[in-house]
Structure formats: C-alpha cells, structure tokens
Computed example of a mutant assay.
Amino acid sequence: MSGPHVLTSVDLDAATLPAATAEIEHERRVAIFDLVEKNSFQPVDSEGGPYSLKLSLQDNRLVFDIAGPAFSRTYALSLTPLKTVLRDYLLICDSYYEALRGSSPSQIEAVDMGRRGLHNEGADQLTQRLEGKVALDRETARRLFTLVCALYRRG
C-alpha cells in the first residue's frame, strides 16, 4: 500500500544559498515549517511517500532533490522564467512592510491585494514549471513559492 503524497522534511543546501541576514534566515525557517506542516506533493511515477525535499540554487537553476520510499529524482528548473515574478513579489513585500509602518488601512489593503496577486502568479508559474514532474495542490504551490522567494532573497 502506498503512503501519503506529502513532504515530511525540507532542507536547503547551505552551500548554494545566497548570504542572508538573520531576518531572511528566519523567513526561510518559517517557510519550511509552513510547507511541511500542510502539503500535497506527488512526484510523477511515484507510488507513495512520504518524501523529503532538498532545495538548492545551482547555475541559475532551482534544484529539487526528492527522495521517498523506492523513489529518488532530481529536477533542475531554470530560474529565468520565475525571475520577474520573484523580483516583483519581493519588491511589493518591501512596499507592504513599509505601508504597515504608516499608511492608511485602504493603502495597506491595496498593496496587500497586489502582493497576494503576485504570490498567486508565482505559485501558478511554479506549478507550470513542475508539470509532468510533481503534482501540487494550490496551497502547496503557494507555500513552495514562499520558500523559493526566501531562498532567492539576498541578505
């Protein structure tokens, strides 16, 4: 009988991570916790999990090292198709945190709507890039995009 199609651990390859501040390190830990806490992660051709995932950045690629019972695959995805949404999302997150410090509720709401829209766009792009490799539900794609942003962000 196959096990659940979920991630039970996520590790980041410290050797390939960009330098990070304490705040960014915290973002990475929270993103990992949220992803592992609740997800649906089904690699194609796998009979069942659970799975462990090691993420790294190598040669402008996002590398997924996936292991599970009787399953092991590595996928390297070019970051180029994701770079625009990654940059835009990180910029709007900075604007959102700035707005929280002194903008009106309607201004904060407007920035937050844009932030959520870009987050959804990034999750959709990540889902498309993983198509034929790993099936994700919407919330897992959103959590995984959050982690990719935390990985991508420079200190």
Rank of each mutant, 00 (worst) to 15 (best):
D45L: 13
D45C: 04
D45G: 10
D45N: 15
S46L: 04
G49C: 05
G49R: 08
P50T: 07
P50G: 09
P50Q: 10
P50C: 06
Y51F: 15
K54W: 02
K54S: 04
S56K: 08
Q58T: 14
N60S: 14
N60C: 01
L62R: 02
L62Q: 11
V63W: 04
I66G: 06
I66T: 12
A67D: 15
G68K: 07
F71E: 08
F71T: 13
S72T: 13
R73W: 04
R73H: 09
R73T: 09
R73P: 02
T74Q: 15
T74Y: 03
Y75L: 10
S78K: 12
S78D: 14
S78I: 01
S78F: 02
L79Y: 03
T80W: 03
T84P: 00
T84S: 11
L86I: 13
L86F: 04
Y89C: 01
L91F: 12
L91D: 15
L91H: 08
L91A: 12
L91T: 08
I92N: 08
I92W: 00
D94C: 00
D94L: 06
S95K: 12
Y97P: 00
E98M: 05
E98H: 13
A99G: 09
A99P: 08
A99M: 12
L100N: 00
L100G: 06
L100F: 10
R101I: 00
R101C: 05
S103R: 14
S104K: 08
P105S: 09
Q107N: 12
Q107T: 15
E109Q: 15
